[in-house]
């Protein structure tokens, strides 16, 4: 293949930019996996579907509720579109996360983990297939209306950085800083850490464990919804809700959580960016077909060499 006429610096910058953007989304999703794992010690398989739901709810709000299709071409989208859609998606997915925990997982608090895992897969299938119903989102791919003007903010080494990319990279950072503050600087965060450290002791100390667990689910789901919103902004062509593409994205985010050290909030952030960059560098400089293979190869390597992840479990406080 003829690639000699490509400016290598431009290609590198473009790759890092995209890898970082997608890494931020992985990190947001991975946070949900890792927080739930920290507290309940099980993989919330349905979490990737909450992310999918976030993307599709964003579409639903933007295209159906606010009727913004084609607005960008005809006179521009209103400024409030982005915050309204984002908050709407986070709110709705937070509610769904709350319901999932209350209805599906709470009755199984004492059950073997395998049962909870299967329930999670059941919830995952349920969300996918309800989303595919004609009365919900329908079984066809759709595309997200442009909420932001196609304006270039800056050039990095000749690479165009549109507003969308700035938002896609910036928002996860802001959200993660907020989460850091919440977990390490507030009473709720303290309670979350306590429950994660030892549920029974925390309960004895007067922490309302059920409320903390619910809060964790709401928080994780809202973060996943934010990731879904950003994903829909960047990759406007949304596959139908039950498409395998979504599950693969969620899985890669889970790999990010494991690589970073599952149960560890900072590890999930680190793992997200690491997996995103690794994937995009692999696609750009190795074989583009093996996008998913790189990620799972890293997973198996990590499981073999350092099962506790990069930020080992004992080293850092976890949630």
């Amino acid at each position: 293949m003829d690639t000699q006429s490509i400016d290598p610096l431009m290609k590198l910058v473009q790759t890092l930019l995209d890898g970082f953007a997608v890494g931020g989304m992985y990190a947001l999703i991975a946070l949900g996996y890792t927080m739930v794992y920290g507290i309940l010690k099980f993989i919330n398989f349905a979490h990737s579907d909450v992310f999918t739901l976030g993307a599709w709810v964003s579409w639903g709000l933007a295209a159906r509720a606010l009727r913004l299709e084609g607005a960008a071409d005809a006179g521009g989208t209103p400024v409030w579109a982005v915050p309204v859609v984002l908050l709407g998606a986070m709110l709705l997915c937070g509610t769904v996360g709350f319901l999932i925990e209350r209805l599906a997982y709470k009755p199984l608090r004492a059950a073997p983990r395998l049962n909870v895992l299967i329930t999670a897969i059941g919830v995952s299938l349920l969300l996918q297939n309800v989303g595919q119903l004609r009365v919900v989102f329908g079984p066809y791919p759709k595309s997200m209306p442009a909420l932001l003007p196609d304006v270039t903010l800056l050039y990095v080494a000749g690479v165009r950085v549109p507003v969308v990319d700035v938002l896609v990279i910036g928002l996860p950072l802001v959200l993660m800083l907020g989460l850091e503050w919440l977990i390490f600087r507030t009473r709720v965060g303290l309670a979350m850490r306590a429950v994660s450290y030892n549920t029974q002791t925390a309960a004895l100390m007067g922490v309302n464990v059920n409320r903390v667990i619910s809060f964790t689910f709401v928080l994780g789901s809202a973060l996943a919804a934010a990731a879904g919103f950003l994903y829909a902004l960047k990759y406007v062509g949304l596959k139908q809700p039950a498409d395998t593409t979504w599950v693969m994205l969620g899985l890669k985010a889970f790999v990010a959580a494991v690589v970073g050290g599952i149960g560890n909030v900072r590890g999930a952030m680190l793992g997200g960016f690491a997996i995103g960059l690794l994937e995009f560098l692999g696609v750009a400089y190795l074989e583009p077909l093996y996008r998913d293979v790189y990620v799972f190869a890293v997973l198996i390597l990590v499981l073999l060499l350092r099962p506790a992840g990069i930020l080992g479990r004992a080293a850092v406080e976890k949630v």
Partner: peptide, 11 residues
């Protein structure tokens, strides 16, 4: 056990 789930899915 749950790692197996992820690895087999990835596999």
């Amino acid at each position: 056990g749950d790692y197996l789930a992820i690895v087999t899915l990835g596999f």
